[in-house]
Design a protein around this nucleic acid. Structure first.
Length: 307
DNA sequence: TAGATACCTTATAG
DNA sequence: ACTATAAGGTATC
């Protein structure tokens, strides 16, 4: 495997790799020691994380291109990586290392909750995951615990994904749209997906048939893009926001999940409205607009770890 | 068009 | 041990 190092001190705002990958944004990375989401926050300070992406020219996609293993760990002031290809740009893209965290924080309002969250997890970045895997994993996220969502993606990869070998180790690749489209509802239920099984199968079928692709939300205005993604089965406004934020570069997206709704009740009651769309507008404005999704992610991780 | 309800499965609380 | 409850919601009526 090829290797490389990225000096963390050169990244604007640094990096907290563990917070980035264990904050419930991405379900497509795995911790090599298998201890993802162990409650002990210190235990994974320099753990290796690994994923497999498909590279298509200069873009990271999950449904086309050759499977590429990417491993990263943060140690001694550096982000170390290993990969089956020359992956410096891939790592920078997947972990959004170009984001200027101080500038993003400066664009959010002075607010004691946000200050606490940003201070505690400073260096946490949003991820830029492949669209199809993000779409499927967040369809699976409905009424699920974070650790179980993660386990479900692993189960999908083991049951329907290709394998790739590097340095004598075998890695499971997230399934392609074809393979998931060919799965039966009962096969998916056997993996524990429950009522999400037909959603996953039918959405995969839409993508495999070429009827739609989550990438097509790019280039639209934020609210149009969110509406566009709800055409997929099992995708409502909340899941659409997750795909926009964690995959498609819409940093203003604020997924209104149970945590954020509770937060709004408690800290921003004036932002409560009677519809998702209106509440979304109000809270996005309150969290600073353009980078509201960053604020949301820090607050989500902060509050989730307190209880 | 808004509002209530069913839905799979599992971990955790009581 | 056993039951109730909730988990990063959505589709359907």
């Amino acid at each position: 495997m090829k290797t490389g190092r990225i000096d963390v001190s050169e990244l604007p705002g640094g990096l907290d790799l563990q917070a980035t990958l264990e904050s419930g944004q991405s379900y497509l990375w795995r911790r090599a020691d298998g201890r993802m989401y162990d409650s002990d926050e210190q235990s994974g300070g320099d753990a290796w994380y690994e994923t497999v992406v498909r590279l298509d020219g200069d873009r990271v996609r999950l449904d086309t291109g050759d499977p590429t293993v990417v491993r990263v760990r943060q140690r001694d002031g550096a982000l170390e990586w290993e990969s089956t290809t020359d992956a410096d740009w891939v790592v920078r893209s997947l972990l959004r290392l170009e984001d200027d965290l101080p500038a993003i924080r400066a664009a959010t309002p002075d607010d004691s909750l946000l200050e606490r969250a940003y201070d505690r997890y400073w260096g946490m970045r949003l991820v830029r995951d492949p669209p199809f895997g993000t779409l499927i994993s967040f369809i699976c996220s409905a009424q699920m615990r974070v650790s179980r969502i993660h386990d479900m993606q692993l189960a999908l990869a083991e049951a329907f994904g290709d394998t790739v070998t590097a340095d004598g180790r075998t890695y499971q690749v997230f399934p392609t749209p074809d393979r998931l489209a060919a799965a039966t509802e009962s096969e998916l239920r056997d993996l524990g997906l429950g009522y999400r099984a037909p959603y996953v199968q039918r959405t995969a079928e839409m993508v495999a048939a070429g009827d739609a692709h989550p990438d097509e939300a790019r280039g639209r205005s934020y609210e149009d893009a969110r509406e566009h993604l709800t055409q997929f089965v099992g995708v409502g406004e909340k899941v659409a926001d997750c795909v926009l934020l964690f995959s498609l570069d819409f940093l203003e997206a604020v997924p209104l999940d149970t945590w954020i709704r509770t937060t709004i009740e408690e800290y921003y009651p004036d932002c409560e409205r009677d519809s998702y769309a209106e509440t979304s507008r109000a809270i996005r404005k309150r969290l600073g607009g353009e980078y509201a999704g960053y604020a949301q992610t820090y607050v989500f991780h902060h509050l989730r770890n307190e209880s």
